[in-house]
Amino acid sequence: MVLGADASFLNPDKLLLLVVLAATCACIVASMIAARAGSVPKIRRIAGLEAVEEAVGRATEMGRPILFVPGIQDMDNPMTVAGITVLSRVAGTAAQYDATLDVPVSRSLVMQAARESVQAAALQAGQPDWYDPERIRYITDEQFGYAAYAAGAMARDKPAACFYMGCFFAESLILAENGNAIGAIQIAGTAETAQLPFFVASCDYTLIGEEFFAASAYLSGAPDQLGTLRGQDIAKAVIALALVAGVFMATIRVFSPEQASEPTVEATQ
């Protein structure tokens, strides 16, 4: 007997995923269209993003630099991308105030993206001369080598404001504790749940998970981006409701008479 395989465009086992994806996309597109038509959603104030000016102002008054750490992952990580978005805002404000901004990075691609972002922000702020590429520099790919450099820079330069925006692991507390010790205003943002408690405890403001990803839409205020946020939120709410309903129905099924009479997997084993 000869065994053969038939090509298929559709895996029927994953049909549900396709439906969810299509529904989510439809939701986002509909929200974007609604936002363009004038129904722009409002986002609650995010203290961490509102405090950017305060932090840059502090650095200006104290005549000290600002330190921006965009995490230790590469550009393929969405947290790094979100971090670069916030960097653009920080750079724009720093350019306006003529404050010094230091951005040590641990990946070469991130350095290039950060330079372009900061240069664009300086141009937009009307201060092209403020941009200095030497202040955005590559340190090392090594996690603790990079953390050691950042901690040393804090001890030497005593920045008045520190931003940690991106993907962090064990180095998060090393950075945040050093920043706290030198009396800097610290604003952190990450979606790494394991690192969030450290940032919350040692930083002035922390962007938590979704807040961090919403930063781009929040800072730009563009209807398209705000509409996207609403579309995502609606999709998430529907999925959450489906989950709750599923759990509820599964629970009922466990306690239903016909199910109760069936032997459990453990019992049969």
Partner: peptide, 20 residues
């Protein structure tokens, strides 16, 4: 006063008030 360092605890995770 604005521009002042805030003191936080883990309990402030969802109630981070702005300075000023």
């Amino acid at each position: 006063l604005k521009g002042v360092q805030q003191q936080r605890t883990v309990g402030d995770a969802f109630s981070q008030e702005e300075g000023g």
